[in-house]
Amino acid sequence: MTNLASQRRYWDTVGATKTFTHPIDPGWLAGIERSARVLDYGCGYGRVMAELSDQGFTAVSGVDVSPVLIQRGRQLRPDLNFTVIESPPELGYGPASFDVVLLFAVLTCIPDDETQRALITELSRLLAPRGVIYVSDLVLQPDERNRRRYAAYAEQFGTPYGVFATDDGAVCRHHDVKHLRALFDGFHLVNERRIEVTTMNGHRSEAVQLLAVKR
């Protein structure tokens, strides 16, 4: 099954040209010190990192599997700290290295349950006690076009329902929100909201954002 690194070619070519749009709610981070150590896992070209830096956060780091997206980020914001993930999902940081982790539109790029769980285990290791994880991702869409895609891919490849391939070659996953909550059952969920986003291919889609604290 597709793991974190196996779509690197897509993100280094077609995906490197995309615009990412999941919004960050400043109010959800209002109580966090601006000196907090923030990690944006799957940062792309650093859009959210730049927003946080502009809001006064002084210790923001971003990591991504795509060297091309990382290079794009460095060109846009040379003042920010970008690193390529060499062996996803593991990073070379020690335990409790961060106070906040952002996971924006990353799980949609990881079709299988096992790899998703491995990522959450690594992020939990990286978070300090009482650390915060802020998740934004896409949920199952009710329209006929998406339902046909989900069913066809599940029948052909035996994937979880919600996995599909885009016309330009990415393998993505839309989630049952119960599945997303279950991934973070080792955390205390403190906030949840539904939002509408524009996907990287220009479609309006429903997403969910979760804010959770490490127990």
Score class of each variant (00 low, 15 high):
residue 46 G to F: 11
residue 47 R to A: 09
residue 47 R to I: 05
residue 47 R to G: 01
residue 47 R to L: 03
residue 48 V to S: 06
residue 48 V to C: 05
residue 49 M to C: 08
residue 50 A to T: 02
residue 52 L to A: 03
residue 54 D to I: 01
residue 54 D to E: 14
residue 56 G to K: 04
residue 57 F to H: 10
residue 57 F to D: 14
residue 58 T to I: 14
residue 58 T to K: 14
residue 58 T to M: 14
residue 60 V to R: 01
residue 61 S to N: 02
residue 63 V to S: 08
residue 64 D to F: 01
residue 64 D to L: 00
residue 64 D to V: 01
residue 65 V to K: 00
residue 65 V to W: 02
residue 66 S to C: 01
residue 68 V to D: 04
residue 69 L to T: 00
residue 69 L to W: 05
residue 72 R to Y: 01
residue 72 R to K: 07
residue 72 R to C: 01
residue 74 R to E: 15
residue 75 Q to Y: 09
residue 75 Q to S: 14
residue 76 L to S: 13
residue 76 L to R: 15
residue 79 D to I: 11
residue 79 D to T: 12
residue 80 L to Q: 05
residue 81 N to E: 14
residue 81 N to K: 04
residue 82 F to E: 03
residue 82 F to Q: 03
residue 83 T to K: 01
residue 84 V to Y: 01
residue 84 V to P: 02
residue 88 P to Q: 02
residue 89 P to Q: 05
residue 89 P to M: 07
residue 89 P to A: 09
residue 91 L to H: 02
residue 92 G to Q: 00
residue 94 G to H: 07
residue 96 A to Q: 15
residue 96 A to D: 15
residue 96 A to N: 15
residue 97 S to P: 15
residue 100 V to D: 13
residue 102 L to I: 02
residue 102 L to M: 06
residue 106 V to R: 06
residue 108 T to H: 04
residue 109 C to P: 01
residue 110 I to Y: 03
residue 111 P to V: 03
residue 112 D to I: 08
residue 112 D to C: 09
residue 112 D to M: 14
residue 113 D to A: 14
residue 113 D to I: 12
residue 113 D to W: 08
residue 114 E to T: 12
residue 115 T to E: 13
residue 117 R to W: 06
residue 117 R to L: 10
residue 117 R to A: 08
residue 117 R to Y: 05
residue 117 R to G: 00
residue 117 R to K: 15
residue 117 R to M: 06
residue 118 A to E: 09
residue 119 L to C: 08
residue 119 L to Y: 06
residue 119 L to G: 05
residue 120 I to H: 04
residue 121 T to D: 09
residue 121 T to P: 00
residue 124 S to D: 15
residue 124 S to L: 08
residue 124 S to I: 06
residue 125 R to L: 03
residue 128 A to W: 06
residue 129 P to R: 12
residue 129 P to L: 09
residue 131 G to F: 12
residue 131 G to R: 13
residue 133 I to N: 09
residue 133 I to D: 11
residue 133 I to T: 12
residue 133 I to C: 12
residue 134 Y to K: 00
residue 134 Y to W: 12
residue 136 S to H: 09
residue 136 S to Y: 04
residue 138 L to T: 11
residue 139 V to K: 02
residue 140 L to C: 08
residue 140 L to V: 13
residue 140 L to F: 09
residue 140 L to M: 11
residue 140 L to I: 15
residue 141 Q to N: 09
residue 142 P to R: 07
residue 142 P to D: 14
residue 143 D to H: 10
residue 146 N to M: 14
residue 148 R to K: 13
residue 148 R to M: 08
residue 150 Y to C: 04
residue 151 A to Q: 11
residue 151 A to H: 06
residue 154 A to R: 13
residue 156 Q to T: 11
residue 157 F to N: 09
residue 157 F to V: 06
residue 158 G to D: 15
residue 159 T to A: 15
residue 159 T to Y: 06
residue 159 T to K: 03
residue 159 T to V: 04
residue 160 P to S: 11
residue 161 Y to T: 03
residue 162 G to W: 04
residue 164 F to S: 08
residue 164 F to L: 10
residue 165 A to E: 15
residue 167 D to F: 01
residue 167 D to I: 03
residue 168 D to E: 12
residue 169 G to L: 05
residue 173 R to F: 02
residue 174 H to M: 08
residue 174 H to F: 07
residue 174 H to Q: 07
residue 175 H to A: 09
residue 176 D to L: 08
residue 180 L to T: 04
residue 180 L to C: 07
residue 183 L to F: 10
